[in-house]
Design a protein around this nucleic acid. Structure first.
Lengths: 142, 142
DNA sequence: TTTTCGAATTGGAATAATTCTAATCTGTTG
DNA sequence: CAACAGATTAGAATTATTCCAATTCGAAAA
């Protein structure tokens, strides 16, 4: 626990095990991308992760980054954040929380789950169940 | 007022005036699209409005629908709703309210503004001002 | 360790949504 | 009714993402 920073979803030495546990084979690219996600920031796009990977000398194609992000998301290791209808963001923080979205530079900032209180959400329509409640606080340069 | 349904942003006889007031010239296509928006449902995509227009015999190209939706949005007559990173939705209801988003069929349902209470939104980062707070309740077939 | 098989990656083509552009057309004003 | 500013058009261009068939690679068996 001394060495556990919140937000790190992968620990370098355990990436293999973690992937296996998620039902994904620890292939070269997946391990490398997982390592990057474990070490760096919280909000990424396929494009940004691909750029990071290439900078780090990892040979991986954009299509594979897309596939991998979706696989990690399905496995519950990442969460997709919808704030921009033009680009998909992924968050390494899968716990309950919300976001500030800066419309000027299209960046995200986490808001801890407890910070915001959402009350009196009406019941969903017949036959529907609430999957989750997303709050996006859109901000602009003042 | 007897004849005023909430959600109707345009009244057939006043479309011209309303557009003019918004600083937009009441061209044939704009008037026609505005009339459609005034008469029909609340949530549309460029694609769906284009289909409606063509069905109604209005000759307008998809690019123009996009332009018009953005112009109306800028003029404050429509609001863009971001719920799907792959498609843009527009809402004829520009008042304060939120949405249910059904992930199975990608449809939106309004939640009145007063229905949900969002409390304790933390202050935005330095130099930023809150533009608006969006709540999306994602639902799935149970 | 080598073989083998099934699943994963690849690169590129395909698709979908949206924006851009240059030429043409049309409201509006004088 | 003439002229101009601004709008529309079709299609090309762009961007983000997905799909696909061929190749490669990881893991379990031999």
């Amino acid at each position: 626990m001394a060495n556990r920073k919140k937000g790190k979803i992968f620990k370098a030495e355990e990436v293999g095990k973690q992937l296996r546990a998620a039902g994904l084979r620890p292939t070269r690219q997946r391990v490398a991308l997982a390592a990057l996600l474990g070490e760096t920031h919280r909000h990424i796009t396929a494009e940004s992760l691909h750029a990071e990977a290439r900078t780090a000398g990892i040979e991986v194609v954009l299509a594979t980054v897309y596939n991998t992000l979706h696989q990690f998301t399905q496995a519950g290791l990442l969460r997709e954040v919808v704030v921009d209808s033009q680009r998909s963001y992924f968050d390494t923080n899968t716990g309950p929380h919300h976001h500030f979205f800066c419309e000027d530079d299209a960046t995200l900032i986490d808001i801890p789950g407890e910070a915001i209180q959402v009350a009196r959400v009406p019941p969903p329509p017949q036959g529907m169940a609430v999957d989750r409640v997303d709050v996006v606080v859109r901000v602009k340069r003042a």
